[in-house]
Nucleic acid binder design. Sequence first.
DNA 1: CTGAATCCTTAAGGATACTG
DNA 2: CAGTATCCTTAAGGATTCAG
Lengths: 128, 128
Amino acid sequence: MDTKEKISYSDKKFEDESRCPMTDFINIVSGKWAIPTLYRLIITDDIIRFGALQRGIGGITQKELTKQLRTFESLGIVSRQEYPEMPPRVEYRITELGKTLKPTLDSLAHWMTEHRDELLANSRNNAS
Amino acid sequence: MDTKEKISYSDKKFEDESRCPMTDFINIVSGKWAIPTLYRLIITDDIIRFGALQRGIGGITQKELTKQLRTFESLGIVSRQEYPEMPPRVEYRITELGKTLKPTLDSLAHWMTEHRDELLANSRNNAS
DNA sequence: CTGAATCCTTAAGGATACTG
DNA sequence: CAGTATCCTTAAGGATTCAG
């Protein structure tokens, strides 16, 4: 560790002065698996174990799921309950704060379902 | 150029069998600037020139904006009108298809505005 | 003014092996 | 079972230069 540490891009994440809600949002929910993970937790709306969550999302690696969960946990969007048993059991659950995102994500899923075919057709026609 | 080209990950983008609307969505609207760009076009709801758009978004590079616009154009979400003048003028505009995303993005912006402080506070308390 | 092209650095994410 | 740790490859994105 250095006394004067390098300031990386990610340290600026979600700090004070961005003031654009969309930019703020992207700084919280970004990457290939953030929304799928969050939506799975919201849809479940109950405790769910790590393994079940991973299978439920489908295709996400353990490393990636762990990272996403840590992020959401620190934001208070997801809660984590660890049971010191053997084998270990860890239960995750969407929080009340996290649930407030449901209407928005529902809207997003609905839009995608509604327009998927049209987008795909456009995409094909304009393929390079 | 090789005759047999390597199949990269991105070639699988938005192809047939994903069937998860959230995954589909991420494949279309991903990265740091996609949503801010799209939202700016939606809010503008009129023709807007490349330079004005870039300034309106704030912080996006020319290269990045061009890339995003090409993507949205190929999906039929944004239209592009080029005037072969000197100096050149290019006007972009959200399409009807693109406008259908407005309620969803409004919801997203609203959620972020509403919960920004709480998220930031949580984030600070749980900082490593 | 609107890009295209190039170079470069960092971030994202997959694969695998290992551990309590 | 639920992670950590490590290695590795590709993607994302910024900075800069150049051109019509």
